[in-house]
Nucleic acid binder design. Structure first.
Length: 413
RNA sequence: GGAGGGUUGGCUGAGCGGUUCAAAGCGACGGUCUCGAAAACCGUUCUCCCAUUCGGGAGGCACAGGUUCGAAUCCUGUACCCUCCGCCA
């Protein structure tokens, strides 16, 4: 949620930020009107309550007291309704983009920050990961579809081992950097998936919900790691908290079909190691760069050529003030494809989940929250299979994973 | 799944229908003292609304309803935590 005070005091700046993100700036006027209405109702109601308190002091049954009670009861629903409406409306205002975020309408205007590595030139026609995985007997979408539906898959043998190796590789690397390894639940209550911005309904619905329960399958450990400290006030001296979380991730991907959606690029369930940071506001920009540098370290370690993109304002989404993606080279696509994303959500999620910091001076305020992909074990194996393939259909294992897998190449005799 | 017990400001913890407009302690912050610090002493330390200078008012005791002139306190429902039993990886 955005700071209502910011909307009141600086409506034009808020409108500008909203418009840059491609959201409707008129929402600001709706919020201001509802806020004014709310304050007027509070004034009236408080006057009545003061009267009630005065009458109650007399300490006896009174007809006037009864009348005031009825008047209060009659007015309270209108305030409740206004506040509910205000809450719903203000939730539609996204986090404002950072001043550093490049202005742009959509993903076409994202800015390439840098490139690392050189895409390999093949002296044979490279196969895509589906063909490679099937021939090697390590990746099986057919059985996934049979048992769970389309866009689910089974992993076998080295495919299964590679997933575990990738997770372990990322966990070991990040634990050395001071991130606390965490395994979280794969489900969370609605408050947490909604508070982190994952909707179960609508055009871009992500979250699967459990029938008859206030629970949803998480789309990322960001949800559970953000929920971990909900309603807490954390002493400044204890920050930052840096976590590397493991979870399965479930996504409806409603309406997300395109030419690159096949195979491991877009699936309903995958495993992910996700970084998550809580820090003081003035530290968040630095932490964001730290998360990005961790991601680059991971992909450099895997020897996958990549480029870093900074999202323009129009492609930031509601939560992020600033966001970087890493795109790894995907040979059969002939271009780079997203494998990580790191967002600085500033105080926006913290306000949703009521997570605050107690400053050294004694003041209390919302802290900043950031997330970043370490390894998604769907898209990263995709990139490994395609980049490390040999003419005979075997696939080399990146050096960094060899100790975890105990082999150097995946091949079938 | 069954039976009990519990949930109070940053923390510990009183209160169990009207001198409590949530006691007390701890911690934190400001001040006095000091060359400086510690100790001691004084003050501040939930949220919202109005005045925005002194201040005034309302709400808040897990959450949502209800009873009452008056609810942290009584009633109903829900969530979570603890103990025991059952079932089970």
């Amino acid at each position: 949620m955005i700071d209502i005070k910011l909307v009141r005091e600086n409506p034009n700046e808020v409108k500008k930020g909203i418009a840059a993100k491609g959201f409707d700036p008129d929402t600001v006027d709706d919020v201001l009107a509802l806020d004014a209405k709310r304050r007027k109702l509070i004034g009236e109601l408080e006057e009545l309550r003061a009267k009630r308190n005065e009458i109650a002091k007399a300490g006896k049954v009174s007809a006037e007291g009864k009348a005031v009670k009825e008047a209060i009861k009659a007015r309270e629903p209108e305030l409740a309704k206004t506040e509910e409406e205000l809450g719903r409306t203000i939730a539609q205002i996204p986090n404002l983009p950072s001043k550093d975020a490049p202005v742009g309408k959509n993903e076409k205007e994202n800015v390439e920050v840098r490139k690392w590595g050189t895409p390999r030139k093949f002296d044979f026609t490279p196969k895509d990961h589906l063909e490679l995985g099937k021939a090697l007997g390590i990746l099986d979408f057919d059985t996934g579809a049979k048992v769970a539906g389309s866009q689910f898959y089974f992993l076998y043998r080295e495919g299964a081992l590679m997933e575990l190796a990738l997770v372990r590789y990322a966990f070991d690397l990040l634990a050395r950097e001071g991130f606390v390894p965490v395994i979280t639940p794969d489900v969370a209550k609605s408050r947490y998936y909604l508070g982190t911005g994952y909707m179960p309904r609508g055009n871009e619905a992500q979250t699967y919900t459990l029938e008859g329960e206030d629970l949803g399958l998480i789309a990322t450990a960001e949800v559970t790691l953000a929920g971990k400290h909900a309603d807490e006030v954390i002493p400044e001296g204890n920050l930052p908290f840096k976590y590397i979380g493991y979870s399965h991730c479930f996504r409806q991907e409603a309406g997300a079909y395109g030419k690159y959606s096949k195979g491991l690029y877009r699936v309903h369930e995958f495993t992910k190691a996700e970084m998550f940071v809580y820090c003081a506001p003035e530290e968040s920009e630095h932490m964001h760069q730290l998360l990005l540098s961790m991601e680059e370290k991971i992909y450099q370690g895997l020897g996958l050529p990549y480029r870093v993109l900074e999202m323009c304002t129009g492609d930031l989404g509601a939560m992020a003030a600033r966001k970087f993606d890493i795109e790894a080279w995907m040979p059969t696509r002939g271009e780079y494809g997203e494998v990580t994303s790191t967002s600085n959500c500033t105080d926006y999620q913290a306000r949703n989940l009521n997570i605050r910091v107690r400053r050294k001076g004694g003041a209390v305020g919302y802290l900043h929250m950031l997330n970043g992909t370490a390894i998604a074990t769907s898209r990263t194996p995709l990139a490994i299979l395609e980049n490390y393939q040999n003419a005979d259909g075997s696939v080399n294992i990146p050096e960094a994973l060899q100790p975890y897998m105990g082999l150097k190449v995946i091949k079938r005799e």
